[in-house]
C-alpha cells in the first residue's frame, strides 16, 4: 500500500511538471497582456511595466526564472493585486474554499448517497420523488438556486446573511448551493448501480437465504460505489477549489473567482497559482479514488498493483 502511494506520488511529479509547463506557455498566447486596459497605456509605460515584471525577456528565460523561483516556493507578485504575492493570496483564499468545499462535499456525499440508497431500495412514490428531486438538482443551476435561497432564508426569514464570509452561519447557504449539483450526480449514479447490483443473482440468492435487506444492500454497494468513487475525485477537487458562480453570488473570498478572473485579466502569476492548486487536488484525489477502488474490491487492488 505505502509503496503504491509512493509510486503514485513519484509519478505525479512529471504530471505536475507537464501541467505547469503547458499552462505557462498557453497563457502567453492568449491575446493581450496583463497590462491591457480599456484606457490603453502609453508605449513607454507599457515597456516599463514589462521590464519591471521581466516580461520583456524571451519566453524560455522567463520559464527558467519561473522554475527557479518556484523551487524557493515563490510564485511572484500578482500583476493585478500589486502588493500581494500570489502564494499569500492563494493560501488565504484556499483556506476559505477548503472550508466551503469541505462542507459542500459532506452535504453532497451524505445527501447524495442517502437519496440514492433510498430510491434504489425503495419502491413507488418515494423512490420516484427522490429521483425527480435529484434531476431538479441537476437542472437548476447555482445562479438560480443561490438567489432563491437567499431570497427565502435571508431576505424573507432573516436567518442568514445575504452575503459575506464572517459568521459561522455564513457557510450554510453557499455550501448547500454548491453541493446540490454534485449531490444530484452522486445520487443518480449510486441509485442506478445499486439497483442493478440488487437485481443480480448474488443479491437475490443472499436475500433468499434470509439475509437482512440492509446487509444485502451493503454487500451490493461494494460494487455499486465504484462509479461514485470515480466521480468523486474530480468532483471533490472542483468543490474544494471553489466555484466562480457560488462565490460571486454570496460574495465569498474564495479561490473560485480567481480561476476565471485571472484568466480574463491575463494575471499570469495568479493563473499559475490557481492551476497549481487545482492540479494538486486533481492528482491527490485521483490517487485517493484509486485507493478507495482497491479497498472496495481486493482484486482491483491486485490489478492496480496496490497489493501484490
Amino acid at each position: 500500500m505505502i509503496r503504491y502511494v509512493l509510486r503514485r506520488i513519484i509519478c505525479a511529479v512529471p504530471v505536475f511538471f507537464i501541467i505547469i509547463t503547458a499552462v505557462f506557455f498557453m497563457v502567453r498566447f492568449v491575446p493581450g497582456g496583463p497590462f491591457d486596459r480599456e484606457r490603453q497605456l502609453s508605449p513607454e509605460t507599457l515597456a516599463a511595466l514589462n521590464a519591471y515584471y521581466g516580461l520583456d525577456d524571451s519566453l524560455p528565460v522567463q520559464y527558467l526564472r519561473f522554475l527557479k523561483n518556484l523551487s524557493h516556493g515563490d510564485l511572484g507578485p500578482s500583476y493585478k493585486y500589486q502588493n500581494r504575492s500570489v502564494s499569500e493570496l492563494v493560501r488565504e483564499k484556499a483556506k476559505v474554499s477548503l472550508k466551503l468545499g469541505g462542507a459542500a462535499l459532506a452535504i453532497a456525499l451524505v445527501a447524495g448517497l442517502a437519496c440514492g440508497a433510498v430510491s434504489a431500495m425503495g419502491r413507488g412514490r418515494l423512490s420516484s420523488a427522490l429521483d425527480a428531486a435529484s434531476l431538479a438538482g441537476i437542472c437548476l443551476p447555482a445562479f438560480v438556486v443561490g438567489p432563491v435561497l437567499i431570497w427565502i432564508f435571508s431576505l424573507k426569514l432573516g436567518w442568514f446573511n445575504a452575503m459575506g464570509w464572517r459568521e459561522t452561519s455564513d457557510i450554510v447557504l453557499p455550501s448547500i448551493t454548491l453541493a446540490l449539483f454534485y449531490a444530484a450526480w452522486i445520487s443518480k449514479l449510486f441509485k442506478d448501480s445499486e439497483a442493478r447490483e440488487l437485481a443480480k443473482d448474488y443479491s437475490r440468492t443472499a436475500r433468499a437465504k434470509g439475509e437482512s435487506a440492509m446487509r444485502v444492500a451493503a454487500e451490493a454497494s461494494k460494487s455499486a460505489l465504484s462509479p461514485v468513487v470515480s466521480y468523486l475525485a474530480p468532483a471533490a477537487a472542483g468543490m474544494l477549489t471553489g466555484s466562480f458562480v457560488v462565490e460571486s453570488i454570496f460574495n465569498i473570498p474564495g479561490l473560485g473567482k480567481f480561476f476565471i478572473s485571472s484568466a480574463l485579466d491575463s494575471d499570469y502569476t495568479m493563473i499559475m497559482g490557481c492551476v497549481m492548486v487545482y492540479a494538486a487536488f486533481i492528482i491527490c484525489f485521483n490517487i485517493l479514488a484509486d485507493i478507495a477502488l482497491a479497498l472496495l474490491n481486493p482484486r482491483v487492488a491486485k490489478e492496480l498493483g496496490v497489493r501484490k
Partner: peptide, 21 residues
C-alpha cells in the same frame, strides 16, 4: 489516466480562448 489528470488541470477559460484564436 495521467493524461486524463493533465487534461483536467488545464484551465478551461484559457483553452477556449486559445482554441478560438
Amino acid at each position: 489516466m495521467r493524461l486524463v489528470d493533465i487534461a483536467y488541470a488545464l484551465p478551461f477559460t484559457i483553452l477556449v480562448i486559445l482554441l478560438m484564436i
